[in-house]
Nucleic acid binder design. Structure first.
Lengths: 157, 157
DNA sequence: GCTTTCTTACTCGGATACCTACTGTCCGAGTGGAATAGG
DNA sequence: CCTATTCCACTCGGACAGTAGGTATCCGAGTAAGAAAGC
């Protein structure tokens, strides 16, 4: 099980957009964001589109256009970013194999209670989501230090 | 992000092996285990090998051979099964893009503190693992009900 | 000076190709219990 | 009756093909700010 690499990119870009916002440097062109972290511009564009579809960023068309955060960074969580890029569906998908093979002839009502394995997996994923939802983009930006933020802003000025 | 389908198979098979153990019906041939849940025998064999490598099951060669749990089901957790099938590595892999692009020229010592995003992701995965480690195969078997266990044993007798 | 047109610099979305990892199958080698053959 | 051989039912491990989804690139369409041109 491996997470989409775009999640890392999107998270870093969101933090960067927050810093730029504080300096009045948004919207920032997608191509420059990609260049800031040496990422393939065309592919990062796809991830940015996904963020926009999820309402995390908004993009401004036309000259002097670009991307910016759609709401304060304190109200954007890592969970939001993961869900936008990696999809909202669970990693574990129960295929109800307990109803196959030796139990194929059994009446369906015997399986009305959800599969215990699926239930446990679901609980673990909920814990994971809860943790991700507890960290906001603003938290991440704050703990990085002002010097890095300043340098980023200088790079875009 | 999607989890290996074999994890579901392996978990169900472990529960089944626990039931069979209680009836003195182990070791059970891999082919029969596959047929019990209508799974492709050759591919399930691969997953069983992975379980054996992880020390969760042990396989008995030769005639009347098969597979059985290597230790009591109460001491096998879902986390063990997931790690055996899906690999022990984290889903999120930090590639340190913060050190690229506009920060490529910066001295390395500025990045001695771990990346905040990677840290948060790691914390969330730890919460996930903790939950999985809290559920044992015996727990799963118990909550399913004795009737299903009896039927499984009857199928192997 | 004001309005219109044009250019430019962006985003958006689809089409496409590649590559990795998961899914699934097959086969030969090894192993050990049970049946069989020989003394 | 006892021992040695053969057979059979298993597992193990590697090799291999197919497929889905993640990675990456490209291109045309749409949009808006600012410059240029015309009145």
């Amino acid at each position: 099980m491996r997470m989409n690499e775009g999640v890392e990119w999107a998270a870093h870009v969101c933090v960067l957009l927050h810093w730029l916002d504080e300096g009045g440097l948004t919207p920032a062109p997608a191509a420059r964001l990609a260049e800031s972290y040496d990422l393939p511009a065309a592919y990062l564009g796809k991830q940015l589109q996904a963020l926009a579809r999820a309402g995390i960023t908004e993009s401004v068309a036309g000259r002097r256009g670009g991307v910016r955060l759609a709401r304060p960074a304190s109200r954007i969580t890592l969970m939001d970013v993961v869900a936008a890029i990696d999809g909202p569906s669970d990693a574990f998908a129960c295929t109800e194999i307990r109803q196959q093979g030796m139990n194929a002839e059994r009446p369906r009502r015997e399986f009305s209670k959800p599969c215990g394995i699926a239930h446990a997996m679901r609980g673990a994923e909920l814990a994971w989501r809860r943790e991700l939802a507890a960290t906001s983009i603003a938290d991440l930006a704050d703990e990085t230090g002002e010097r890095v933020a300043d340098r980023a802003r200088a790079h875009f000025r």
